[in-house]
Design a protein around this nucleic acid. Structure first.
Length: 486
RNA sequence: GGCCCUAUCGUCUAACGGUUAGGACGGAAGCUUUUCAAGCUUUAAAUCAGAGUUCGAUUCUCUGUAGGGUCACCA
C-alpha cells in the first residue's frame, strides 16, 4: 500500500467536458490526498469506445489545471503504474480475468443478446427483477437449469463473473456509515465485453487494486453496485479500499438532477465568465461539506487543512448561482490591488485601457462586479462610456422635478463658479463634494443641483455619485461638460 | 415496481439527548447628505407528519409522506 500513504484517484471517462458534479468528486479526492500528503492519481476510463469524445482527455486536464487540482500520476506525467489510460491496459485486465477463470469464478456468456432480452422481458412480465444468474449455463450451475453450455472464452463473447455467495451485503462507508443492499444487487455481471474491453465494474476494481488506491471517492449512484465490487475484491482475496460516497448536486430549479441551465455546464465556462478558481473550489467544497464553524471563505491551502471526509453531507444540495457569485466576490477581495487592476483592464475594451481615467475608474468598477466578465457587461450596458466620451444630453432631462430651466441653469452656473476656484491638482472627490454640498444645502432641495450635475456629466439618470464622476473626469472635462449643459 | 439512501429557514448549513434552534446566500426595512451599486444596521423565515423510548427528542426507534439513487456488453 505504498508506505501507508493515502492514495486517491479521479477516474473520469472521456465523454465530453467536466461539469460541476465531476469536479466536486475530483476536488474531494484531491483535498483528501493533499491533506494527508498522499498521492492523487488521474486515470482515464475509456472502455466505452462508442461514447468517447475526441479531445476530452485534454479538456479534462485543462479543467483540472485551471482549478489547481494537480495530479501526481496520470496519462501525461506517468507514474509507477503507467499507463493511466484504461484502453492501454487491456493485457492487465486479461490477466486478472484469467485468474478468475482459473478459480472457476468467471465464464463466457453463451447467450445471444436477443436471448437475454427475452429473459429480461419475461422477468418483467412476472414483475420480478431480472437476474442473469438464474439462467446460468448447466455446466456452471446445474441447479439453475440453463440449457446452453459456455464455450471456452476466446475474447469474442462476454466474460461474466460468477457470484459465489448470494447474500444481503453490508459494508461501511466513510461518509454514510453502514450501508447495505439486498441479494438482487448481486448478479453475474459482465467483466469483459465482446469487443474485448473490460466493463467499468471490472476495470476500475483491477486498477484500484493495482494502483494501491486507499480511498475511492465517487458519487452515490454507485452505492447500489458496490456489492458487485465487493464480491470482486473477495474473489481476488484483497481487502477493499475505503469507500467515500458523495451526495449529488441538484439543479437550482428544484430537487432535480442538474441540468445544463443551472450548472451542469462545462466547468471551463466558469473560467470564461471570469470566476476565480479558488472561489469555485471553495463554493463546490461547501456544497455538500461543512467543517462546522461559521466561517465560509477559505483560500485553497486552508481548505485543505479543514477538509474532513466525515463532514460530508448525506443528502443532495441545490446549486445556487447567487451564493457562487457572493463567494467569488469574497475571493476577489482577497486579491492584491495589482491583480485586481490587471484583471479589470484586461476586460475593458482597448480604447478604455491604460489612461488616467481608467486607472481612477478601477475602484468603482470593482465594487460593482462579482466576476471579471461583469466588466464587459458594464461596458455593454453603456455604464462606462461617458467617462471617455462626452455624452449626448437632452435638455429636458436636465430638469429636476418641476424646477424651471432658468433655475437649473442658474444652479449649474453656481457649481461652475465654485469648481473653477478649486486647485486642479487638488480636485478630489472629498473637496468636490464639500464644495458642491455647501451650495446644495442652501437650495430648496439638493436634487435641483445634484441631479443636473449628474446628468450633465454622465448623460444617465443612474450613475455613481456626481462628485466621484467629477473627480475621475478631472477639472477641465468636468467644467466643459457643465458649460455645455448650461 | 424491487432494492438502497435521504429529510433543519426559499437555498447552503450549525447545534455531546438539555440553546431564545446559530451562521451564510437570497428577501424586506432603515441609515448612509438626489438615483443605481457598494457598505452599515435591523428584520422576517426552518426542525416533513404521527406514534414510541426518555425527566427532556432536531438528535434514538417505528410507521407514513416526500425526494433522490439504482436495477446495461454506460461509466
Amino acid at each position: 500500500m505504498r508506505d501507508n500513504k493515502v492514495v486517491t484517484r479521479f477516474a473520469p471517462s472521456p465523454t465530453g467536458f467536466m461539469h460541476v458534479g465531476g469536479v466536486r468528486t475530483a476536488l474531494y479526492a484531491w483535498l483528501w490526498a493533499r491533506k494527508n500528503n498522499g498521492i492523487f492519481i488521474l486515470r482515464i476510463e475509456d472502455t466505452d469506445k462508442e461514447r468517447e469524445v475526441a479531445g476530452s482527455i485534454e479538456h479534462i486536464q485543462k479543467s483540472l489545471k485551471w482549478l489547481g487540482l494537480d495530479w501526481d500520476e496520470g496519462p501525461d506525467v506517468g507514474g509507477p503504474h503507467a499507463p493511466y489510460i484504461q484502453s492501454q491496459r487491456l493485457d492487465i485486465y486479461k490477466k486478472y480475468a484469467e485468474i478468475l477463470i482459473k478459480k472457476g469464478l468467471a465464464y463466457s456468456d453463451p447467450y445471444t443478446e436477443a436471448e437475454i432480452e427475452d429473459f429480461r422481458k419475461k422477468a418483467e412480465a412476472e414483475k420480478k427483477p431480472f437476474l442473469y444468474r438464474e439462467h446460468r449455463p448447466a455446466s456452471i450451475d446445474a441447479s439453475q437449469g440453463g440449457h446452453e453450455n459456455p464455450p471456452v472464452w476466446d475474447g469474442t463473447v462476454p466474460l461474466r463473473f460468477k457470484v459465489s455467495e448470494i447474500k444481503q451485503t453490508k459494508w461501511n462507508d466513510v461518509v454514510w456509515g453502514e450501508l447495505s443492499a439486498g441479494p438482487e444487487a448481486l448478479d453475474d455481471f459482465i467483466l469483459i465485453k465482446s469487443d474485448g474491453y473490460p466493463t467499468y465494474n471490472f476495470a476500475h476494481v483491477v486498477d484500484d487494486i493495482e494502483m494501491g488506491v486507499t480511498h475511492v471517492v465517487r458519487g452515490q449512484e454507485f452505492i447500489s453496485s458496490t456489492p458487485k465490487f465487493l464480491s470482486l475484491y473477495e474473489a481476488f482475496d484483497i481487502t477493499p479500499p475505503f469507500f467515500v460516497t458523495t451526495p449529488p448536486i441538484m439543479g437550482s430549479e428544484g430537487k432535480k438532477k442538474l441540468s445544463k441551465r443551472d450548472g451542469a455546464k462545462d466547468i471551463l465556462d466558469y473560467e470564461k465568465e471570469g470566476y476565480l478558481s479558488e472561489a469555485m473550489i471553495n463554493y463546490l467544497a461547501f456544497l455538500g461539506f461543512n467543517p462546522g464553524g461559521e466561517r465560509e471563505v477559505y483560500p485553497r491551502e486552508e481548505l485543505i487543512k479543514i477538509f474532513d471526509l466525515s463532514k460530508i453531507q448525506h443528502s443532495g444540495a441545490q446549486w445556487n448561482d447567487d451564493k457562487l457569485n457572493w463567494m467569488n466576490k469574497e475571493h476577489m477581495k482577497l486579491l492584491s490591488q495589482e491583480e485586481i487592476k490587471n484583471n479589470i483592464l484586461k476586460h475593458l475594451p482597448e480604447n478604455m485601457r491604460d489612461n488616467v481615467i481608467s486607472q481612477k475608474l478601477i475602484p468603482i468598477i470593482f465594487e460593482r462586479i462579482s466576476k471579471w466578465a461583469d466588466v464587459e457587461e458594464m461596458v455593454a450596458r453603456g455604464e462606462l462610456l461617458f467617462f471617455f466620451k462626452s455624452p449626448e444630453i437632452e435638455k429636458a432631462k436636465l430638469i429636476y422635478k418641476n424646477y424651471s430651466p432658468e433655475k437649473i441653469s442658474n444652479n449649474l452656473k453656481l457649481a461652475i463658479n465654485a469648481l473653477e476656484n478649486l486647485d486642479e491638482n487638488n480636485f478630489t472627490t472629498e473637496i468636490i463634494k464639500n464644495t458642491l454640498m455647501s451650495i446644495a444645502n442652501n437650495l430648496e432641495s439638493r436634487g435641483e443641483l445634484l441631479h443636473p450635475i449628474r446628468y450633465a456629466l454622465s448623460g444617465l439618470d443612474k450613475s455613481p455619485d456626481p462628485f466621484l464622476i467629477a473627480f475621475i473626469l478631472g477639472k477641465n472635462e468636468t467644467l466643459s461638460r457643465l458649460q455645455k449643459a448650461v
